[in-house]
């Protein structure tokens, strides 16, 4: 399979990159590793006229402590992030998530953290070859009028399949986005729109440059788990991340995020208040499970190798397991 024709830029400064992105807008895509992008280009699911590579932007590969945050350049490779001392010390959950991505030799060396966050949401009816889609007809995301997975859907229901997405959201990450008008900050949760066609809160002239994760003032307990059918080189059937802090033996802060369900990671907001002040218990873990099932029920559709019913139930199981694991693990 061949790549379609496009113009290729590899700017050496962010300013230059923004300039090019601004010039071509929506018809330009960012290449930040390419382990997903190249496949999508070959399958013609996207047909940009311009590809802008970030490979020459050294400043996007830095990982530094800045004030009360760890700042990870969006262009840092996944293995670079996973091997970074500060990441390992403060956010082992992120290391864990990265270890689940693809294959070490390809995705983790070639793929970048920003690229993983911006992974195009996936769908069995969308991530197919041009030939395949010709036979089945176009979907909402490829210029058609109907969603092939859910007949009456108003927007694309594709699945956010990034391993790092629920983790960065659970860690209350802040994303730095640079555009023509300058730089702005956006919470990781807000970064995901929930719409498969336009999954990220990014303007046509904007580029994701940094992920800032606040260093917690107290030791955090965290856990990431995913269900998949193969032990590597696979996307999650469902995944979940939980981050909590304690005051004495009671939960002080709690965040549970379930993903690979719909186009955006799902934060179980209610639990963030109802779990405060409680101690870990089987009852509490079950509440997390039930809350997750309720939260994903209206979101999951039949667009993955696993059925809707199964994924909904597994969202509950994964949510319970990360909650239990985070709340009973030793704190860091």
């Amino acid at each position: 399979m061949r790549l379609p024709a496009f113009d290729y830029y590899s700017p050496t400064s962010i300013e230059n990159a923004i300039q090019i992105k601004n010039e071509f807008g929506g018809s330009a895509v960012i290449l930040a590793g390419g382990t997903d992008l190249i496949v999508n280009l070959k399958n013609r699911v996207i047909a940009p006229s311009v590809v802008i590579s970030l490979k020459n932007l050294r400043e996007l590969r830095k990982i530094d402590l800045a004030g009360d945050s760890l700042v990870i350049g969006a262009g840092a490779s996944l293995s670079q992030v996973a091997c970074n001392e500060n990441v390992q010390r403060h956010f082992p959950i992120l290391v864990d998530a990265i270890k689940h991505i693809g294959a070490p030799s390809i995705q983790r060396h070639r793929g970048s953290i920003g690229g993983n966050l911006c992974l195009n949401p996936r769908c069995l009816f969308y991530n197919q070859s041009f030939f395949w889609r010709k036979g089945k007809g176009s979907c909402l995301r490829t210029g058609g009028k109907t969603c092939l997975a859910l007949e009456k859907a108003e927007s694309c229901q594709a699945i956010c399949s990034a391993d790092t997405a629920p983790v960065i959201v659970a860690l209350s990450g802040q994303l730095t986005i640079v555009g023509r008008a300058g730089s702005r900050s956006c919470s990781a949760q807000e970064f995901f729109t929930g719409k498969g066609e336009t999954p990220f809160n990014l303007g046509p002239d904007e580029i994701l440059t940094e992920i800032r994760i606040p260093i917690p003032w107290a030791p955090i307990s965290s856990s990431y788990k995913r269900l998949s059918y193969r032990s590597a080189i696979d996307f999650p059937v469902i995944n979940a991340a939980c981050v909590a802090t304690f005051e004495q033996e009671k939960i002080f802060r709690f965040r549970l995020v379930v993903s690979a369900a719909g186009p955006a990671p799902i934060t179980l907001k209610d639990l963030e208040s109802t779990f405060i002040g409680r101690e870990p218990s089987q009852e509490l873990f079950s509440e997390a499970e039930q809350a997750a099932v309720r939260a994903v029920e209206g979101i999951v559709v039949d667009n993955s190798i696993a059925s809707k019913q199964y994924r909904v139930k597994m969202a509950g199981v994964m949510a319970r397991r990360v909650t239990q694991s985070a709340l009973t693990a030793s704190r860091r």
Partner: peptide
């Protein structure tokens, strides 16, 4: 897996061949 005669997993990503791990 199928959708009305169209195979949904023609490639190795979604057709889950085991790996050495």
């Amino acid at each position: 897996h199928w959708s009305q005669g169209h195979v949904l997993n023609p490639t190795m990503l979604e057709y889950k061949i085991p790996i050495i791990k």
